[in-house]
Simulated assay, not measured.
Amino acid sequence: MLTIAVEGKTDQKIIAALLANAGVHDTSIIVANGSIAPSTRGWQRIEKMSSTRPLIVVYDQDSGSVGDAVSANQEVTDIVFCPAIPTVDAWLFADSAAFFNAVGSKADAFLGRMPLPEQLPYPKFLKSTMLRDQRTLEQLLTSINISIAGSRSPSLKHFINAARRHSNLDPLSFEQPIDAYGQLNREVLRNLISEVYPSEKTLFRSASGNIITAEQMMQEITDGTELGREYSSDILRVARDLLARQAQKKLNETDRKQ
Results as ranks from 00 to 15, higher is better:
residue 1 M to G: 14
residue 1 M to P: 15
residue 1 M to N: 14
residue 2 L to S: 03
residue 4 I to M: 02
residue 7 E to W: 00
residue 9 K to Q: 07
residue 10 T to K: 08
residue 13 K to C: 08
residue 14 I to E: 09
residue 21 N to T: 05
residue 23 G to C: 10
residue 26 D to W: 10
residue 29 I to P: 02
residue 31 V to K: 09
residue 35 S to T: 11
residue 37 A to T: 05
residue 37 A to V: 06
residue 37 A to G: 14
residue 39 S to M: 11
residue 41 R to M: 15
residue 43 W to P: 02
residue 43 W to Y: 15
residue 50 S to N: 13
residue 50 S to K: 09
residue 50 S to H: 11
residue 50 S to Y: 00
residue 52 T to E: 15
residue 52 T to M: 15
residue 54 P to W: 02
residue 60 D to R: 01
residue 60 D to W: 03
residue 62 D to F: 03
residue 65 S to W: 02
residue 66 V to F: 05
residue 67 G to S: 10
residue 69 A to Y: 05
residue 70 V to R: 08
residue 72 A to P: 06
residue 73 N to Q: 05
residue 74 Q to N: 13
residue 75 E to H: 12
residue 77 T to V: 11
residue 80 V to D: 00
residue 81 F to A: 01
residue 85 I to H: 02
residue 90 A to F: 02
residue 90 A to R: 09
residue 92 L to R: 04
residue 92 L to I: 07
residue 94 A to D: 02
residue 96 S to R: 13
residue 97 A to M: 11
residue 99 F to Q: 08
residue 103 V to K: 06
residue 106 K to N: 15
residue 109 A to E: 15
residue 110 F to D: 11
residue 111 L to G: 07
residue 111 L to Y: 08
residue 112 G to V: 09
residue 112 G to S: 07
residue 119 Q to M: 14
residue 122 Y to F: 10
residue 123 P to R: 10
residue 128 S to T: 13
residue 129 T to E: 13
residue 131 L to M: 08
residue 132 R to D: 12
residue 135 R to I: 10
residue 135 R to G: 10
residue 137 L to M: 09
residue 138 E to W: 01
residue 138 E to Y: 03
residue 140 L to P: 06
residue 144 I to A: 05
residue 150 G to R: 00
residue 150 G to F: 00
residue 152 R to E: 00
residue 153 S to N: 10
residue 153 S to P: 05
residue 155 S to F: 03
residue 156 L to E: 01
residue 157 K to M: 14
residue 160 I to C: 06
residue 161 N to D: 11
residue 162 A to T: 00
residue 164 R to N: 05
residue 169 L to M: 10
residue 171 P to V: 05
residue 171 P to I: 06
residue 172 L to W: 06
residue 175 E to P: 01
residue 176 Q to G: 14
residue 176 Q to W: 10
residue 177 P to K: 15
residue 179 D to R: 13
residue 185 N to F: 00
residue 186 R to C: 09
residue 187 E to G: 13
residue 189 L to E: 10
residue 192 L to W: 00
residue 193 I to R: 02
residue 196 V to G: 00
residue 201 K to I: 04
residue 203 L to Y: 07
residue 205 R to H: 12
residue 205 R to F: 09
residue 208 S to G: 09
residue 213 T to P: 04
residue 219 Q to F: 06
residue 219 Q to S: 12
residue 220 E to K: 03
residue 220 E to G: 07
residue 223 D to S: 14
residue 223 D to Y: 04
residue 225 T to R: 04
residue 228 G to H: 02
residue 229 R to V: 01
residue 231 Y to D: 02
residue 232 S to A: 14
residue 233 S to P: 07
residue 234 D to M: 13
residue 237 R to C: 07
residue 237 R to L: 03
residue 238 V to D: 03
residue 239 A to E: 07
residue 241 D to I: 02
residue 246 Q to I: 11
residue 247 A to F: 11
residue 248 Q to E: 12
residue 248 Q to D: 13
residue 249 K to C: 02
residue 249 K to M: 09
residue 251 L to Y: 00
residue 253 E to P: 06
residue 253 E to V: 07
residue 254 T to H: 14
residue 255 D to T: 12
residue 258 Q to L: 14
